[in-house]
């Protein structure tokens, strides 16, 4: 036990302040009412879905939980079930073999729900494009609220996009 405590003490708190939301990443106008968003605050539950990514986008999403970005400290956490989720964070171009699974997960997520498309692949289909095996961008399969480009987007860009999804436009000036 002592070595563990010593290590924790030695490490200290390394978490860094969260970035602001990046409104430019929004793909549609905010669909949730301002009242609802104020209610929600930043208590957000995310279901991540890999719809066919190369797994580098997942690496960056994992990084959100590391002590530097400490996403959970903002009240945002990941869940195992779409039924508990407010937001789907979807990576990859949508592989044809994942199309039905992605639609089902979307249908299983209770309203009101938000979708954030992650990475160049999620935003445009990226290098994989559209083919017999690939449906291209996420928006070709389910409605998307915010798109975060990058290959892969950095954890900071991911946070800016996730925050953009849940911050009403009017609240932008107040700084989150």
């Amino acid at each position: 036990m002592f070595p563990m405590l010593r290590q924790i003490f030695r490490t200290g708190i390394v978490s860094e302040p969260a970035p602001d939301a990046d409104e430019t990443l929004r793909a549609t106008t905010q669909r949730l009412s301002e009242v609802m968003l104020r209610q929600l605050g930043r208590a957000l539950v995310i279901r991540q879905i890999d719809a066919g990514s190369c797994n580098a986008c997942e690496q960056e999403i994992h990084a959100l939980s590391n002590p530097y970005y400490n996403l959970e400290a903002l009240g945002i956490k990941f869940t195992a079930s779409p039924r508990h989720a407010d937001l789907l964070l979807v990576t990859g171009p949508v592989a044809k073999n994942m199309e039905i699974a992605l639609k089902r997960a979307y249908d299983a997520t209770p309203e009101p729900k938000l979708v954030v498309a992650v990475g160049d692949c999620g935003c445009t289909g990226g290098i994989f494009g559209e083919s017999y095996a690939c449906c291209g961008r996420i928006a070709n399969v389910i409605p998307v609220d915010v798109s975060i480009p990058g290959c892969p987007p950095t954890p900071l860009q991911l946070m800016q996009g996730i925050l953009a999804a849940i911050v009403p436009e009017a609240m932008q000036e107040e700084k989150v």
């Binding site: 044809k96 073999n97 994942m98 494009g129 690939c134």
Partner: peptide, 11 residues
């Protein structure tokens, strides 16, 4: 497996 098959070889 095969769920993330994206047709890379054809690409």
């Amino acid at each position: 497996l095969g769920w993330t098959h994206k047709g890379i070889e054809r690409r």
